[in-house]
Every structure is written in C-alpha cells, then in structure tokens.
Amino acid sequence: MVRPEKATLTDRDPQERQRQGSELNEAEAIERAKQGDAQAFQALYDKHKRRVYSLCLRMTANTAEAEDLTQEAFLQLYRKIATFRGESAFSTWLHRLSVNVVLMHLRKKSLPVVSLEETTQGGEEDTPKKDFGAEDLALAGSIDRLHLQKAVDDLPPGYRTIFVLHDVEGYEHNEIATIVGCSIGNSKSQLHKARMKLRDLLKLNRAEKAGKS
C-alpha cells in the first residue's frame, strides 16, 4: 500500500493544533487520517478528545484508567478508521467504539457492566429507600455539576454504566440493551435505581454541607 507522505507527529501546542484542526473540514480530516496523515488524526483527536475522555472518566470514575482508555480508544480509532464508511456520523461511530473499549475494560476487571442485583432480582439493598419519617431536603431546582460528578463516581459500576450511557451520553434503552447485553426492561430499571441512588447521594452531600455550615 502506498501512503501519501505523512505529516510529522510533532509536539505542537494543542491550541495551535485545534486552530489547524478547525481549518480542516472533518470529512477531509477523516479521509486524510484514513491515508495515515498524522496531522489529520491530531485534528480528529482535538475535536473529540473531551467527549471521549469524559465518557471514560464517568464510566470508570478513575483518572488514570480514563486516560489509558482514552488512549486505547484513539489507538483503536487509528487502526480502524479505514473501516469507517460514513453510514453514521463520525462522532457516533467513535463514541460507540469508545464505549466498547470501556465496557471491554470493565469486563476484564470483572466489574459488573450491569448490576448483579438485577440478575438476582429482589435484592433491594442498593435501592434507595424512601424514609418518610426523615426530613426531606429537596434538591431545590439545581444541581452543582461537580457534586453530580462526584455522586456519579460514587455509583456502583453497574448503575453508573447505564446512567452514563442513557442520561449523559444520550443512548436509548434499546441501544443500551444491545451494547451492554441486557434486556430493555433491565436497562430501564437500572436507570431508575441509579437516579434514585444519585438523589440520595446528592441529598446526603447537601445535608453534610448544611451540617458543616
């Protein structure tokens, strides 16, 4: 295979790369990256890195793992970009590829991609209980992003996966069922429980803050 002359991979300033990347039309960048053009690949990285890294970080709740997985996702992209035929949006395709990288990692770590509770049916230990006697501190119409982030990180891995895929990344339950390998009902149920758990965690956090002040 004869490849066109490649741009050198240099340690250019990310902002400079971003500027050059934005000058490069995405479709053109994809085509050039398919030919092994390093500059075009950098442009794609700069454009999509935040989305991919955020996904990895949300699903693993671990910075080091998220960085490794982001790297792995973009290396997979480099290896597989020639197979991208434009049947879906590039961001959708890359995103799906990244999700698969993360899920593969979670499976290797033997972390439940879907909560074990769901498979045994009936264990409600993890499900937040409504304590009707306790003072109910409502979330009062706003959620601080950092607190939400922290609460998502504290979710059990199974809940976290479904919550991130549905509420953060915008996948539908049928898509999640396919990606994760569970039923649609299971996905819905876990999402609901994840939200309930998050509400508890956020309220707990708020109560702690109120107690301190």
Binding site: A66, L139, R145, D167, R199
Partner: peptide, 20 residues
C-alpha cells in the same frame, strides 16, 4: 422533580473533562 433534574443535569457531564 429531583429525578427529572438529575436527568437534565447529566448532559452537563458529557464534555466536562479535558484529558491531560
């Protein structure tokens, strides 16, 4: 209301992080 708020706030996490 809280659950709806959580769901709507979640999208803010989508591109919240910049990799090192």
């Amino acid at each position: 209301a809280d659950l709806n708020l959580i769901a709507s706030s979640a999208i803010d996490l989508r591109e919240a992080e910049e990799p090192s």
